[in-house]
Design a protein around this nucleic acid. Sequence first.
DNA 1: CGCACTAGACTTTTT
DNA 2: GTCTAGTGCG
Length: 712
Amino acid sequence: MLLDNLNEAQALAVKTTEGPVMVMAGAGSGKTKVLTTRIAYIIEELGVNPYSILAVTFTNKAAKEMKDRIGNLINIDTKYLWISTFHSFCVRVLRNDIDKLPPYKKGFNIIDDDDQLKIVKDLMANTEYESKPREILKNISKAKNNMTVTFKSKSKESEFYDIKDMYQNYLKRENLLDFDDLIINTIKLFEADSNILAKYQNQFNYVMVDEFQDTNSLQYKLIKMLVCVNRNLFVVGDDFQSIYSFRGAKIENIMKMRNDFKDTKLILLEKNYRSTTEILNLANSVITNNPNQIKKVMTSNNKTGNLPTLYRAFSSYDEVSFVVDKIKELHAKGDKYEDFAILYRANSISREFEDILVRNKIPYKIYGGLSFFQRLEVKDILSYIKVIVNSDDNFSFKRIINKPKRKIGNALLDKLEACSRNVNKSLYDSIPFYEGGGEGAKNLAIFKTTTDSIKAQLDNVKLVDLVDIILKEYNYKQYLKEEFGEDKEIIEERMDNIYELKSVLKESEEFYEGDNIQKLTSILEDLALRIDNEEFKDDDCVRLSTFHQAKGLEFKTVFMVAMEDGIFPNSNIESEFELEEERRICYVGVTRAKDNLFLTCADSRMRYGQKANNPMSCFIYEMDSNCYEEYVKKTHNVNNTTLNFKQRHKELTKKTEEIKPTNSIDKGDKINHKLFGDGIVVSKVNDTITVAFSKEYGIKKLKADHPSIKKI
DNA sequence: CGCACTAGACTTTTT
DNA sequence: GTCTAGTGCG
């Protein structure tokens, strides 16, 4: 029954339930279908307790989708299944036992990037240090994830470690955890207490990981710890779609797993159910330029259609017009707006499209920027709720104490902080002990009276109404007016977000049990991780987004725009490794399209206030020209982009050569490749070597100086 | 403490 | 070109 709608490879993946299994699932090959069917199969056919299955994803959306689809397959309540993001899983573990890792306490708060930045800035304000806070944060995250951090000088290095220590100590003191800490401390907890680890190891008989190519070294370590006893690890991924290495994702984990679990069964899903043959041919033609990946040739479901179209525009205006004309044309033929996606490498490109879409009255939605729970007004209201629920939350207190302005600035806060140290209470609780006059001090007292009275009636109000009470009692709208002044539209938009928060609270309210404080505590704990980007999903809109954000989605018609060297691949690309990742981004872009694909670039566009003439993307030059056709609008002078491309390509190769250490590999040498494992060099012609790997991968031709290769 | 002006950045960012 | 963070003055 469950297996009825699966092809052979998919069914094999579902039925291979015991032992380590790796599924390399090409774009559009039914990876979620396999995962969900497998879970349903294990529950239904093997009679396994649903709670002994753990499935981890990277996004809440993916987790939710999996739950929904399992619910459609079998008749169980999916609400409490262990299907969650890495981070939510860790929170669930840490909420139970983090007190075994003092000084952390169970009521810890999770902070996001924005909070982190604030903390680092505050800490640095008391020092002479001059590093850039953003840079510091980037490096803190890198260091936490075992990535290499490079410094300009020894003094910068010691400065970094000093700030990092101050940061970590601050977080511990305030019982705060950043996203990285969630993973790190779960591992620490498992290392510190073998009973706790054993409990989870025994509970989870089946562990599954989605988007495995995106796991970083800590996430892999965590998974390994969980499965090392019963070894039923099932991972699904696609090395072609690894585009998050800048965030620490380690494509090497694919090889690592197969080394750590020698009996790992490899299953390839190569049948694509999404795109036409023409689009798939183009996708394959892109990715073959990355020589060092597990070979998969996506074959189509025999769906045929139009050849992808390349349009080289004179200017970005010309490019944008082309896209809009096409959308209008296809819309007139019956396509919906939501069938279209305009995808680009960098968010800044979206601007040029917004204007013309508005003028042509085409509804669109830009995905990108801040997610709902990162919006300042949402965070403000949440901070208010946190302060009301928990008077120990200094961090949230500081966030909202002067919103709206209550004349409580840094000077007064410093004094209050000194006072709070003296009486050994939180900032909020030390307000009555603060001695010192001034309007600010008076306002502090008023703030406390207001808050106390809301606390007192907390159990008699509906949680949804709490938002209105906060808006009214603290005069929050006043703050928005102070901050955004004349612009009514912005204020309305922000208020809309606050009202949206109300509906989130309403939804959550039904999920949790207990009195209001208990409910609120539970809701607040996990809200930081609950970023649903599904807003407006039922609107019929053209979607504008980066290639990264479009991963996992599909559209009838896709425009890949600003396909220009300097933008895509980005001008910052400095190594072959990075260029390969850009190429994978390109592959992700192409494979989003179901029926129609348009590639566009412009001979000239404004960048940073200046006119830029970018050559056409080298990725287009790399594609087999039989895989696309060029659309020529009118007789227009195709300029010398070829020349530019060649120059640029030379530069790129030169840059790469400078970086690469020259390791001399010769015929007969044993080498290790990060994906294919060990192999023997059978021949060498110039810098191309032919290597015999294990029979799974067979004979491969590789560049001798490729960073994935090491001589052993 | 708050406003106004200026210097600098400007790739991607599942949590 | 545009946004934002930081500085300096009233």
